[in-house]
Design a protein around this nucleic acid. Sequence first.
RNA 1: CGGGGCGUAGCGCAGCUUGGUUAGCGCGCUUGGUUCGGGACCAAGAGGUCGGAGGUUCGAAUCCUCUCGCCCCGACCA
Length: 480
Amino acid sequence: MNETKFVTEIASKEEAFSQWYIDVVKKADLADYTLVKGCMVIKPYGYALWENMQQCLDRRIKATGHKNAYFPLFIPESLLKKEAEHVEGFAPEVAWVTHGGDQKLEERLAIRPTSEAIIGSLYSKWIKSWRDLPVLINQWANIVRWEKVTRPFLRTTEFLWQEGHTAHKCEEEAEEETVKMLTVYKDYIEQDLAIPVIIGKKSNNEKFAGAVHTYTLEALMGDGKILQAGTSHNLGQNFAKAFDIRFLDENQQEQFAWTTSWGTSTRLIGGIIMVHGDERGLKLPPKVASVQIVIVPILFDKSKQEVLEKARIYKEALEEKFSVELDDRDSYTPGWKFNEWEMKGVPVRIEIGPRDIAKNQVLAVRRDKGTKTVINEEDLVATIEKWMVDIQKNLFLQARANLEENIRFADDYDSFKEIIEEKRGFIKAFWCGDGECEEQIKKETKTTIRCFPLEEQNEKGKCILCGKESSSIVYFGRAY
RNA sequence: CGGGGCGUAGCGCAGCUUGGUUAGCGCGCUUGGUUCGGGACCAAGAGGUCGGAGGUUCGAAUCCUCUCGCCCCGACCA
């Protein structure tokens, strides 16, 4: 009875997915709207999640030899314009600073929509010899893109991300770096965030403005739409030529450097919500959950002190391995707390009441499955430790099963349209490689090529639209 | 930028058609008390320039004009 009352608080995930998403963002206390359209506050609970995500990824970025730095927020207009495709790609969504106080600026300053330009101009200063290479730098920063349609975490005017920018002495090394970061991202997103991804290469229409080619990680969301989870770009010598990044090689020949860039953002928080969440709210993977265990004491007047004392002892024991919150608030009933912490996605809840104390046990509940288990005091830490591993794995396996169920092959355009209307998900289909076919499919079905899968392909077939002979299968999908 | 909708307490809304006491309701909030194993209850409170400006009128949340903002659909979106 109470459970039905509860679900009226957030929209149904099945029936109104986008409203459900907004409700979860707000009710789980991750973010809030502000006075500026498209700009959100990331609230403490959401920011703690982001900090954990940062730590997981930052560790991996550093383990592969990169160092962090910080570059300026402002990019002079003349600098941004140096790479033609790049500026053309970003121009519509750049925010400009035109005044400093009352004084009009000589030159407009772009608020970075990405940092290739500003970083490229500095690499030009720093790189003179092959001995200076490679340069392997990452930055954690905020970005501004003036989007017309915004949604919390998924597309906001200002957002947080990391962007790696590297420079290399040859083409092979740059390509190796681009692919290496793709796999770093894959490991991070799959192992830490428990989100399975399809990795591949973008089509020319979808690649990064100014890149030679773009690798991408594509994830399936709970409503069958696709979220681009991260990208890694091989920029070739395009940006080196535009920003004059030259060096003398071992043979005393002057060369342009080969550069890469790669990024992931707070958008991944949206991914976690939409991949793992359910009718009761968020489900956080233990590796990034800021609260891994919540202890809810069941308080009666007579046993209150005793129960709280025991709860504190358990908290201390568990805190050696986990982040634990003891919810001893007086003004809420246990049932209220259960629902709130489930909404917030905490992986494990522990209930302690007088009945448990009498038997030296607790009642523990898993957020991923909802199962309730009585655990003896002496087994508590060891059992929860196993659970955390299992919950992390289970969230990933569930998401992967869903992904696999929603990859469908289409061999004619009618069945393609039927799948995208009724089931969505990924559609594998042959494509002739012509950008006009791609464009027409996008116009008619709102479906884009998400990527060329990385595996080698030997099959041949007919382009889903024009029917021309083709040897490449691509993944289509409706994107966020 | 085109089409539609909405602005009344922190949130969700009623009141407006047909102008007329002191602008209501639910949730939330504060204080006190009783409660507590899946969103408890009682009592007493606090909280409003009715998005803004101008107009009509003895009198405007309500009618008129202008304006600002938000949401949805479309277009756009590396």
